[in-house]
Write a protein that binds this DNA or RNA. Structure first.
Length: 595
DNA sequence: ATAGGGTTAG
């Protein structure tokens, strides 16, 4: 074990190169004891006095918000003797579940400072906390703490770190770590480790492409590289899957859902069918996530009627649709501009006691905006607040676009002020919508002023902003101005971007965009922010354009493709007693026959 | 007792 620890340390410094930097990040936080922070936070509620393990247990079960958690913590650190490490672990876990990751990290440090002998559980909760807040480097620095405290990292530790690397799109490092684990037998592997890696690889189907695209600098043959990368990455996921099965690690519902989702995103419906069939042969029943994935994928293909059938099918199989299932279907109708049906789905949620969440509202608002039904959109915006949901930056950006689209500029600008007053930070989409909205409404000069303001405020600049404004000047036939913006790009460290050349399902692009945006705007804490920025400025515009192109092309899939997809899902025989009919009856079986 | 993987949005 000692030997393994040594190898690991070496590995971290040499190959991952984030051990030291992570360490300095983690330990360079203010030395201020966390207790003072707690006093600021935790005074709202009177601390419950608990003096025993039993009492802590009761309070732990009733933690509803951060205040509750901090009150309990304050209480626990005052107890003598101090409560056991398991209870501190449970509390830390609560804070992570509440998604307050910075508090989680502070608490972990404070627990260490208290002299409690923390366990590998504590460390793993801490590492997960770092990973969920996209600071996997901090996670690696906690790994350093492991050794210092005489703990041995285990399969949970490494699965979490792998997840963290994939989340930050650090695919090469993730693959390197995984190979290292295999080669040096640093820990056993579990179904979760494989699930993490498979999921990461599936989602990176576009990332490999992006890296190649970046290398090729927009000049080499995209199509060849694309063709290779796209399938190679997901095929390596399948290879992994085969490996894990050989090793006797049984795939479960999560593993299958990851694969089904991955192949749906790539539009490889034959494989979707294969895995659906295989999971049912293994008596693993599709769950709400499997069905939601299928509904979403069918919708993205423009097959919303088939998606609706799946929703009914799952209900008949006693799998209760959740907010995600309904929202995915609703988005399908929105993508087709079928707003009455979209609204029906939205309303049907109420009758099934499924509360729409912020995504549901955002999707429906977007649907109305795209159909120029701005009053319906604004009405929903008000309605969501009445229901206690707080509009987020997506809501505002969507509505901003909708308002500009119908020419209501002053309302749009008012909304832009309002979102900032609500302490929301405009992001990439917000700025694109603002600049584009101003340009399209013949306020090109005002758009340029806004862009200059962004430059002066030290915002992360993006080539798309300049594309929009240049386009605006061109349309206004002020080519001279457009040209001067173009020639000033290099002085701002920006390069003209290239056109997209390949097809990728919308959802994959969106996820990738979200990741890149997070990386690029995630602040200085991320070590490779320059790398992210480079990706961001070179690719996002192309991706955005492609999203739109793909969406348009999928609004009406050609008949043969529709047949392929429908057959793939239908042929699976999603019923418990019809597995023997699979194969020969491809696509012939009506949906009813599945049950 | 306490820790790790999967579905929806601009």
């Amino acid at each position: 074990m000692k030997m393994k620890g040594f190898c690991l340390g070496q590995f971290l410094t040499s190959s991952l190169k984030c051990y030291e930097s992570g360490k300095s990040h983690f330990f360079s936080h203010s030395p201020l004891r966390f207790l003072s922070v707690i006093h600021c936070f935790g005074t709202k509620k009177s601390a419950t006095n608990c003096n025993s393990r039993e009492e802590i247990k009761v309070v732990l079960e009733n933690i509803r918000d951060l205040d509750d958690a901090l009150c309990l913590y304050e209480n626990m650190v005052r107890m003598r003797p101090l409560p056991c490490v398991e209870q501190f672990n449970q509390l830390l876990s609560c804070v992570v579940n509440l998604k307050d990751y910075s508090t989680g990290i502070y608490l972990l440090k404070d627990v260490c400072n208290l002299g409690i002998s923390v366990s590998e559980y504590t460390m793993n909760i801490g590492i997960n906390c770092c990973c969920l807040s996209d600071r996997v480097n901090y996670g690696f620095s906690i790994l350093g703490l492991f050794f210092k405290r005489g703990c041995v990292p285990n399969v949970v530790t490494f699965s979490t770190l792998l997840k963290g690397l994939f989340r930050e799109n650090r695919i090469n490092e993730a693959q390197e770590l995984f190979r290292k684990i295999l080669r040096e037998g640093m820990c056993e592997l579990s179904v979760v480790t494989y699930g993490t890696v498979i999921d990461g690889l599936c989602k990176a189907g576009n990332t490999a492409m992006a890296i190649e695209l970046l290398k090729s600098n927009g000049k080499r043959e995209f199509s060849v590289i694309d063709g290779l990368c796209k399938d190679r990455v997901i095929d390596s996921a399948v290879k992994l899957f085969a490996e894990m099965t050989e090793k006797g690690i049984t795939p479960n519902i999560v593993t299958y859902n990851i694969l089904v989702c991955g192949f749906c995103n790539l539009g490889r419906w034959r494989e979707v069918k294969m895995f659906l069939k295989e999971m049912m042969d293994c008596k693993i029943c599709p769950d709400v996530r499997t069905f939601s994935t299928l509904i979403d994928a069918l919708c993205k293909e423009g097959l919303v009627d088939e998606a609706k059938d799946i929703l009914h099918l799952m209900m008949e199989r006693n799998v209760v649709p959740n907010v995600v299932s309904y929202t995915a279907l609703m988005d399908g109708y929105c993508l087709q501009g079928r707003m009455i049906e979209a609204r029906n789905v939205f309303d049907s949620m109420a009758s099934t006691n499924t509360a729409p969440n912020i995504n549901s509202f955002n999707i429906l608002i977007n649907g109305y905006c795209k159909k120029m039904k701005i009053d319906d959109a604004v009405h929903l915006f008000r309605e969501m607040r009445l229901k206690g949901l707080t509009p987020d930056i997506v809501t505002y950006s969507t509505l901003l676009q909708g308002l500009f689209r119908v020419g209501r500029c002053s309302y749009a600008l008012k909304l832009f002020d309002e979102l900032q007053a609500a302490r929301l930070k405009p992001d990439f989409h917000t700025y694109c919508n603002l600049l584009d909205g101003l340009c399209k409404n013949k306020h090109v000069k005002r758009a340029l002023l806004s862009l200059n303001a962004l430059e002066q405020n030290g915002e992360l600049l993006h080539i798309s902003y300049y594309n929009i404004v240049m386009d605006g000047f061109c349309k206004a036939e002020n080519f001279h101005k457009a040209q001067s913006i173009f020639s000033d790009l290099p002085s701002k460290g920006l390069e003209p971007d290239s056109k997209p050349r390949r097809e990728m399902p919308r959802c994959v692009y969106c996820k990738r965009l979200a990741t890149i945006n997070r990386l690029a705007t995630g602040g200085k804490a991320i070590k490779d922010v320059d790398f992210a920025r480079k990706h961001h400025s070179k690719l996002s515009h192309a991706e955005r354009r492609h999203v739109e192109a793909t969406r348009r092309s999928r609004e009406n899939p050609c008949r043969s493709r529709k047949q392929l997809i429908t057959n793939a899902v239908k042929g699976v025989g999603l019923s418990s007693n019809s597995t023997s009919t699979i194969g020969s009856s491809d696509g012939e079986m009506p949906l009813r026959a599945w049950i």
